[in-house]
Amino acid sequence: MARWVAARAFAPGEVDCAITVMLKILDGKCRMAPEEKRVMALLYAATRALPAQRFGAAAHALIAEGCEREDEAFRLMIYERRVLAESMLSRPVMKAFKARIRREGLFDLPVAA
């Protein structure tokens, strides 16, 4: 995954999209297949150090904690942050991000990549 990401230029807005998808995975509202969720989590991890446009250290800290905790109260807090994050991104930006990663073969990579 790191090589796949390194071979592409990710705009700060696209990093925001990866962060937002990771929040959606953690809040339990993501409708992706389990393998797609795993690939998206790997994408988030590979883009985590890249500059984001809107989200930064606080979002990364929340995600890190969310990966460790499974209590409902914390999941609700992640849900609220995710909804706020989605409201800050335009639909066309998120759709373009999802289309790009599909077009460029993200989900065709071996899961262990």
Results as ranks from 00 to 15, higher is better:
residue 9 A to N: 09
residue 9 A to K: 11
residue 12 P to D: 09
residue 13 G to E: 12
residue 15 V to G: 09
residue 16 D to G: 06
residue 18 A to N: 05
residue 18 A to I: 07
residue 18 A to R: 05
residue 19 I to E: 01
residue 19 I to C: 03
residue 19 I to G: 02
residue 21 V to P: 02
residue 21 V to M: 13
residue 22 M to F: 00
residue 23 L to H: 08
residue 25 I to M: 06
residue 32 M to G: 02
residue 33 A to Y: 06
residue 34 P to V: 08
residue 34 P to Y: 02
residue 34 P to D: 12
residue 35 E to F: 01
residue 35 E to Y: 01
residue 35 E to G: 04
residue 36 E to Y: 08
residue 37 K to W: 03
residue 38 R to E: 13
residue 41 A to H: 06
residue 41 A to R: 15
residue 42 L to H: 12
residue 43 L to S: 12
residue 44 Y to T: 07
residue 44 Y to V: 06
residue 44 Y to R: 08
residue 48 R to A: 13
residue 49 A to E: 13
residue 50 L to G: 04
residue 51 P to E: 03
residue 51 P to W: 06
residue 53 Q to L: 13
residue 54 R to L: 13
residue 55 F to K: 07
residue 55 F to M: 06
residue 56 G to F: 05
residue 57 A to S: 10
residue 57 A to H: 09
residue 58 A to C: 01
residue 58 A to L: 11
residue 58 A to T: 10
residue 59 A to V: 01
residue 60 H to T: 12
residue 61 A to H: 08
residue 61 A to P: 02
residue 62 L to A: 10
residue 62 L to Y: 04
residue 62 L to N: 02
residue 63 I to L: 06
residue 64 A to V: 04
residue 65 E to L: 12
residue 65 E to D: 11
residue 65 E to F: 03
residue 66 G to T: 06
residue 66 G to I: 09
residue 67 C to W: 05
residue 68 E to Y: 00
residue 68 E to L: 14
residue 69 R to E: 07
residue 69 R to T: 10
residue 70 E to P: 00
residue 70 E to W: 00
residue 71 D to L: 11
residue 72 E to A: 14
residue 73 A to M: 02
residue 73 A to L: 09
residue 74 F to T: 06
residue 78 I to H: 03
residue 78 I to A: 07
residue 79 Y to K: 14
residue 79 Y to G: 03
residue 80 E to M: 12
residue 80 E to G: 03
residue 80 E to S: 10
residue 80 E to K: 13
residue 81 R to I: 00
residue 81 R to T: 04
residue 82 R to E: 13
residue 82 R to H: 07
residue 83 V to N: 10
residue 84 L to P: 00
residue 84 L to H: 10
residue 85 A to H: 08
residue 85 A to K: 02
residue 86 E to L: 15
residue 86 E to F: 14
residue 88 M to N: 08
residue 89 L to N: 08
residue 89 L to H: 07
residue 89 L to R: 11
residue 91 R to D: 10
residue 92 P to Q: 09
residue 92 P to D: 11
residue 92 P to E: 10
residue 93 V to E: 15
residue 94 M to N: 01
residue 94 M to W: 01
residue 97 F to K: 05
residue 98 K to L: 15
residue 99 A to N: 13
residue 99 A to C: 07
residue 100 R to E: 05
residue 100 R to C: 05
residue 101 I to Y: 02
residue 104 E to N: 01
residue 105 G to F: 09
residue 106 L to D: 03
residue 106 L to R: 04
residue 110 P to A: 11
residue 111 V to H: 00
residue 111 V to F: 00
